Simulated assay, not measured.
Amino acid sequence: MAAIAGARLASRRTPGRLFLLDHPLFKGGALIMGAGELFGDKMKSAPDRTVFLGLLARVMSAGIAGAALAPRGRERTGATLAVATAVPLAYLTLAGRKRAMARLGQTRSGLIEDALIVAAGAGIVAAVVGRSR
């Protein structure tokens, strides 16, 4: 969501039409939440991403992102595919993160995970936004 909000702040268009993406409060909130996620999951008190509220937030943000990045008129399909991907990945990435934490520690494993996720998200958004000009 933060990558999409950043693209929209840079006046780049996404193929899917979602009115929320044009609201300044939403764009700013998505950027703040993205930064908060980067810092929050390094805390020892951070809950697993598979708790109910974590999964709910993941479902909502995946649905919005999937709809925004889907071709025009296919927003519902994009949202459905994104949610269907995000939920199982929450469990898979949690298992991987726990293994990495045992070897590297919480902060280092979190930084590596964040670097991979930020790069992947920015790359996907850049590729889709670049095609939708």
Rank of each mutant, 00 (worst) to 15 (best):
M1P: 01
M1G: 03
I4C: 07
A5M: 10
L9N: 06
L9K: 05
S11W: 07
R13I: 00
R13F: 03
R13G: 04
G16P: 01
L18W: 09
L20N: 04
P24A: 11
P24L: 13
L25E: 11
L25M: 12
L25P: 02
F26W: 15
K27E: 15
K27R: 15
G29R: 14
A30S: 14
I32H: 06
A35F: 06
E37D: 11
L38Y: 08
G40I: 01
D41G: 05
M43P: 00
A46L: 00
P47S: 13
D48S: 14
T50W: 10
V51M: 09
V51I: 15
F52P: 02
A57E: 12
A57R: 07
A57F: 13
R58H: 12
V59R: 12
M60E: 10
A65F: 01
G66Q: 01
P71Y: 13
P71K: 14
G73Q: 03
R74S: 04
T77F: 08
G78T: 06
G78R: 04
A79C: 11
A79G: 06
A82K: 05
A84D: 07
A84F: 11
A86N: 11
A86R: 08
V87W: 11
L92F: 14
L92H: 07
L94G: 13
L94T: 15
A95N: 09
R97Y: 14
R97F: 15
R97M: 10
K98E: 15
K98V: 13
A100Y: 10
A100M: 14
A102N: 06
T107L: 10
S109K: 07
I112T: 01
A115S: 09
I117N: 02
A120C: 07
G121N: 10
A122K: 03
V125E: 04
A126R: 07
A127T: 04
A127K: 06
A127R: 04
